[in-house]
């Protein structure tokens, strides 16, 4: 594993709490400290309600922390305005969701190209890139299929190709295999591993299944909003 010295993600004393309309404050993340370097493959585990998904949303600039610092690729995320945050999501981050979240009524190529289209690229630029990525994830036969014509595994492959489209530094995957059977899950995880090892892309996966987490190299565990474990997967006693 080649580890670049520059930290991609730096989280310092991060807190997140929700306040209900009635004024009841529910702390979700408490004093989280974490540094992730470029090229890492990290799994985040924890039981439901442990705060792992909230943490992922903060990492993905989809949600903002209540307190503490989050530096992504050298930028203090809290200081960004909406447009700058959108740009950061577009250029630095790639998302893979549990529910695939492809755009309906658009072909696989169009879906994969969305981040490039959002970045203002012309069709002559985005189309070859989308086709190249779909070939890489093994969907060269389904370039022009609509999402509802694809199986769950195929949809997730399209989603991964989409996450890769704009050459992101880090791909965030929230329960990417949650809706898939075990064979397909392994295929998807192998794809992530391949992207990490061959292309050096940083991958952060949230999961509650140990055998999915086993594909990663580094493991982070949350319990009740507190980071309780940060070490290698092997030390945690999980085997691939």
């Amino acid at each position: 594993m080649q580890q670049s010295p520059s930290p991609l993600v730096v989280v310092n004393h991060l807190y997140k709490q929700y306040e209900s309309d009635a004024g009841v404050v529910t702390p979700v993340l408490k004093d989280v400290n974490l540094t992730i370097h470029e090229g890492e493959f990290v799994a985040i585990m924890g039981p439901s309600g442990s705060g792992k998904s909230t943490f992922m949303n903060v990492l993905g600039c989809l949600d903002v922390q209540t307190d503490g610092d989050y530096i992504l690729s050298g930028q203090d995320v809290r200081r960004l305005n909406n447009e700058q945050a959108a740009e950061l999501r577009n250029r630095v981050l790639g998302f893979v969701f549990q529910g695939f979240n492809l755009l309906p009524r658009r072909t696989a190529v169009h879906n994969v190209a969305m981040p490039l289209i959002c970045a203002g690229k012309e069709k002559v630029e985005w189309e070859p890139r989308a086709i190249e990525l779909l070939k890489k994830v093994g969907l060269s036969e389904r370039l022009h299929s609509m999402p509802n014509e694809l199986s769950g595994g195929q949809q997730q492959r399209v989603a991964i190709a989409r996450a890769m489209a704009n050459y992101p530094h880090v791909v965030l995957a929230d329960e990417p295999t949650g809706n898939l059977d075990s064979t397909t899950s392994n295929d998807i995880m192998n794809l992530f591993r391949e992207l990490n090892e061959k292309e050096g892309i940083t991958i952060i996966v949230v999961t509650h299944e140990p055998d999915i987490a086993a594909y990663a190299k580094r493991l982070i565990k949350f319990r009740d909003g507190v980071l309780v474990y940060d070490g290698t997967v092997n030390d945690a006693g999980i085997n691939a």
Partner: peptide
Amino acid sequence: IRKAIGAHES
């Protein structure tokens, strides 16, 4: 989804 992908508000 589109915002997560990086679509601008404008």
